[in-house]
Amino acid sequence: MLYLELFLQGLLQGSIYALVAVGLTLVYGLLRILHVAHAGLYTLGGYFGVLVFNSTGSLMLSGIVAMFGVGILGVIIYRLCYEAILDQPPYVPLIASIGLFIAMEELYRILFGSYGISYTNPPLQQMLPLGGMYLREGEWVTILVSIILIGGLAWLSSRTRLGLAWRATVTDPQMAESFGIDPIRVRYFNFFIGSALAGTAGMIVGILNNLVEPTMGSVPSYKALAIIVLGGLGSVRGTLVAALMLGVVESFGTIYLGNVLNRDAIAFVFLILVLMVRPQGMFRGV
């Protein structure tokens, strides 16, 4: 039972990584931009969640605002920050993205203070037994939301016209445009979906930790970058597998190696070991 609970905890952590990293890999797959500022949007999701919940008491409303608000802001960031520099060498948007991330963190510090904000009446904190395993409501909800969102993304990508346009544009934007697909619309869609996932993840982590702070995006940002490399740059499937694996390895590692290495160190030792064997990542392509 211990192993099963550790495995479930790992999947829980992995599903949060997946929500953040899938958005990042969507952007990389389409535009070949390492969108570091994605982690700033994750933090913003946390702030939207806590601020809306503390003022309205509605978890549903705070979820909607975190998801859609961050999604829309992601599109605005693309429009104002990246669109004009898409034809520049890759390091130009990368530097812009790093600068944007730093600016976002500082902005959160100015607007919301350095010490973070907590939920005044933290939601989803009760322990809930299910199948003999005890997790907090928030943790069960995290697993459920991740399954719904990632499943929804898979459905959108494989079963809809928009998904077809997106997949074609990722493979060859010029040819996709030849057949009437609007690449700008696809890019907006891509940024919206990726950012909305990050915003949702930020809100979930804010609830689970009962704390939202300006720097909460830092660790997820470099872990997500490592995950998308591990999964194979641009591969959504690879990113999902890598994120879940990393979560499980962290979960078991903190029990068996916790006296030697902390959680983040375990994650990065694992990433380095895998990349030594498969430097190209586990998967490649869409």
């Binding site: 016209r161 077809l164 346009a165 074609a168 493979t171 040819m175 996709a176 057949f179």
Partner: peptide, 16 residues
């Protein structure tokens, strides 16, 4: 579109 199936490629052709 090499990652897409034959059907998907044809459907992209008729996208408009």
């Amino acid at each position: 579109f090499s990652d897409l199936t034959v059907r998907d490629n044809l459907e992209v052709g008729g996208y408009s």
